[in-house]
Simulated assay, not measured.
Amino acid sequence: MAISDIRRQYGLRTLDESQLTAEPFALFERWLKDTIEAGIPDPTAMTVATVSADGQPSQRIVLLKDVTADGFVFYTNYGSRKAQELAENPKVSLHFPWFFMERQVRICGTAHKMSMAENARYFLSRPKDSQLAALASQQSKPIAKRELLMTQFSQLKAKFTSGEIPVPDFWGGFRVVPHQIEFWQGGENRLHDRFEYNLAESGEWQIQRLMP
């Protein structure tokens, strides 16, 4: 079968005006709950798209760690490619690919660094091995072979056999404050349902239906 012939019919459900909420966060949390309850792997996985100084887009998958009316939160190494690009251009796009639910959510916004207190609170809540991995890895930097990373991890594990692991100053979170959120629900014959929320200067969310 040719790649161009691979397709399937959508139609699990529809999305109409009666299901929308006045602001997008309530609808997002409803969809996220649906995804979690459906048992889909990695329901909080999202694509984070950034742009380099020379205009080259870059994408990667990270995990959503919090969502409130203030925005969407993820954590990373501040020396990573994504963090460096966000330092130069804080405009960012997120994408939740809930394909098994025939749903997608696209978010455009601005990334802001989390406070030291917020970083520490989350870091100390992580499993110890995850804390050690954050210390061991200089994310996005070249490394000759995996054994060097595993040696660094083992040395840190031996060093911190007891007691609290210090929060690294090169690690922390970003909160993406959105100005646009789109909800996509797959429809029969590719007649998908798409609704876009845009934040007005008044602080209110304006909603429009988009053509599929």
Rank of each mutant, 00 (worst) to 15 (best):
F153K: 02
R146T: 08
P90D: 12
S140D: 10
E37A: 15
L156Y: 01
A2D: 13
I181D: 00
D129E: 12
E23W: 05
Q155R: 13
D129T: 08
V167Y: 02
L64N: 04
V62A: 05
H95L: 15
T35M: 05
L132I: 06
E182Y: 03
G11F: 02
P178W: 01
E182L: 03
R194C: 07
Q19V: 06
P142F: 03
W31Y: 05
Q9D: 13
F25W: 07
R30S: 12
P24Y: 00
A120M: 07
A49M: 15
F25I: 10
E204L: 08
N189F: 10
L135E: 03
Q155P: 05
F183Q: 00
A26D: 12
M46E: 03
R209L: 14
D16P: 09
A200P: 07
Q139F: 03
Q152H: 14
R60I: 10
F100M: 14
F96C: 02
W205Y: 08
G79D: 14
S4Y: 15
R8I: 10
V51D: 12
E85C: 04
A117L: 14
R7N: 13
E196K: 11
A111D: 02
S93W: 09
D42I: 12
R13Q: 14
A134K: 00
N119W: 04
L20A: 03
G172I: 01
R81V: 14
F25E: 04
D34W: 03
L27Y: 02
L148F: 06
P90M: 07
L27W: 02
M101I: 11
R209T: 13
L20E: 03
K82D: 11
W184I: 00
W184V: 00
E88C: 11
S125W: 10
G39A: 08
P24F: 00
F170L: 09
T76K: 03
Q9F: 09
D5C: 06
S130G: 05
F123S: 01
L199R: 06
E182G: 05
Q84F: 10
L191R: 14
V67R: 06
V51W: 08
I107G: 00
P97A: 04
L149Y: 05
R175V: 09
Y122L: 12
K65F: 05
D42H: 14
L135W: 10
V167K: 01
A144Y: 13
Y122T: 07
L124M: 10
L27N: 03
M114D: 11
V105C: 04
T110V: 15
P41I: 12
I143Y: 04
A200I: 09
F170D: 09
Y122C: 05
R81A: 14
V105Y: 01
I6D: 11
I207A: 02
R194I: 05
Q206D: 09
Q56E: 08
I165V: 05
K82S: 12
K157M: 06
T14G: 11
S18T: 15
K113I: 14
V67K: 08
D169P: 06
L132M: 02
P127I: 05
Y197W: 09
F74D: 01
N198V: 11
L156T: 01
I61A: 14
P24A: 01
E204T: 09
L86A: 04
K157F: 04
F183E: 01
L15Y: 02
L15W: 00
Q56C: 07
K157C: 06
